[in-house]
């Protein structure tokens, strides 16, 4: 409408599903907190471009809002690769608590602003486990010889390899057919994402290895944010705060449970694993990383661990 400020929210996830439900509610929070002055326009499915394009748009101020994985910041600043480390958190809830802690927020703020963005909210995306076509996985040896699709990231790939599988690079969009035809044997992701992409139709063994817990921040363009009135800025921050609480306490826990139920109903065999064995197997990846880490990476890692252990 006339006189309102439009905020384009450009994301890669599809127009339906848990994340989209979240996005629509985020728009409501923003409208409510700004008394209708700011209107969020939701652009799902990379309609306005992929993650990199969204980041670049935010830096230029042509895209106002986006959301992506915390590790995606490492395109700009290698410090964020810390978030890729395996078994950094016990649960998604714990990760959210730490990332919204005041000390951690203060530390991250300057780093994010240097990338031309500002974090207004955090979303739990659960933990990533391995779904495969062959058999249930209980210990690292069960993963031997399984080609598991992995994102292009040396820590993530190193972890999958250390867990016993062969990390295989492949575009996410090709995974369904690749699983069906045996090009790869497994994928790793959280239950709602696996379900949203129909992976339960082609792979039947989900082992709750929970190697990665990487939450998604909701970010806004720094240039755009700075151009808002003081009142609107406060409204955006308050909306982000309300959203973080609602998303993590109400939306996600239900979605995660529902997704797991739906997977089981679709005939997926879900099994718990002894995570300690896997933690031990991937310890060298963490040790390697820390031994060659930069000052920033070390500082960030130590801060996260300190806040985590104090809770």
């Amino acid at each position: 409408a006339e006189g309102t400020i439009a905020a384009k929210y450009s994301v890669v996830f599809p127009a339906t599903g848990t994340q989209a439900d979240g996005a629509n509610k985020l728009g409501e929070f923003i409208k409510e907190e700004s008394d209708g002055r700011i209107e969020m326009e939701f652009y799902p499915s990379s309609q306005l471009g992929d993650k990199i394009a969204a980041m670049e748009g935010m830096i230029q101020g042509t895209i106002e809002m986006s959301e992506f994985s915390a590790t995606d910041f490492s395109n700009y600043d290698s410090m964020w690769s810390v978030c890729s480390l395996p078994y950094l958190w016990d649960s998604g809830e714990q990760a959210i608590e730490v990332f919204t802690d005041t000390e951690v927020t203060a530390f991250m703020e300057e780093k994010v602003e240097k990338c031309g963005m500002k974090i207004i909210a955090w979303q739990n995306l659960g933990s990533r486990s391995i779904l495969n076509t062959k058999h249930a996985v209980n210990e690292p040896a069960d993963l031997n010889g399984l080609k598991v699709r992995c994102m292009q990231d040396s820590i993530l790939a190193g972890t999958i390899n250390a867990m016993g599988a062969s990390a295989t690079p492949l575009a996410w969009g090709e995974c369904y057919t690749a699983l069906q035809q045996g090009t790869i044997d497994g994928v790793e992701n959280s239950e709602p994402v696996l379900l949203a992409n129909g992976m339960q139709e082609v792979a039947k063994y989900l082992s709750l290895t929970e190697q990665f817990i990487i939450p998604d921040p909701v970010v806004v363009s720094k240039v755009w944010f700075d151009g808002l009135s003081e009142e609107d800025q406060q409204a955006m921050l308050k909306a982000g705060e309300d959203y973080t609480k609602w998303y993590n306490e109400e939306l996600w826990p239900n979605a995660e449970q529902e997704a797991q139920d739906a997977l089981i109903e679709a005939g997926v065999e879900v099994n718990e694993v002894d995570k300690e064995v896997f933690k031990e197997a991937v310890q060298p990846v963490i040790d390697d990383y820390l031994s060659s880490a930069t000052e920033d990476q070390k500082a960030f890692y130590e801060l996260l661990v300190k806040v985590r252990d104090n809770q």
Partner: peptide, 18 residues
Amino acid sequence: KYTISSGMLKTIMLKIPY
């Protein structure tokens, strides 16, 4: 302009500037 303003943007694996 796009090329020179890509600044710190690097690829994840090889850390090649974009």
